[in-house]
């Protein structure tokens, strides 16, 4: 699967991820700091993913 990260924008490839929640664990990211978005729709950590998916992990922290 393809994971899109922002600030700066970059993409990483991962295989064998089953759920959105696993994605956070694999990348050691805190789910409270991101919104997982697939094809323009929000998903939750329980949603299933497969190797064909493109998921954006959009950071929610901003401003100063």
């Amino acid at each position: 699967m393809k994971v899109v990260l922002r600030n700066p924008r970059r993409e990483i490839e991962l295989t064998g991820v089953k759920r959105v929640g696993d994605l956070f664990r694999r990348l050691d990211l805190v789910s409270e700091s991101y919104l997982p978005i697939r094809a323009g729709e929000l998903c939750t950590i329980e949603d299933a993913v497969d190797d064909e998916d493109v998921i954006e992990l959009r950071p929610v922290i901003s401003g100063g």
Partner: peptide, 23 residues
């Protein structure tokens, strides 16, 4: 903060996602 972002996405609000370069 995660909820205001989710609200914006769900309401189709086009907002600045990139972080300010001074941050």
């Amino acid at each position: 903060e995660r909820e205001t972002a989710a609200y914006a996405v769900l309401q189709g609000i086009d907002y600045e996602v990139d972080e300010c370069p001074m941050a």
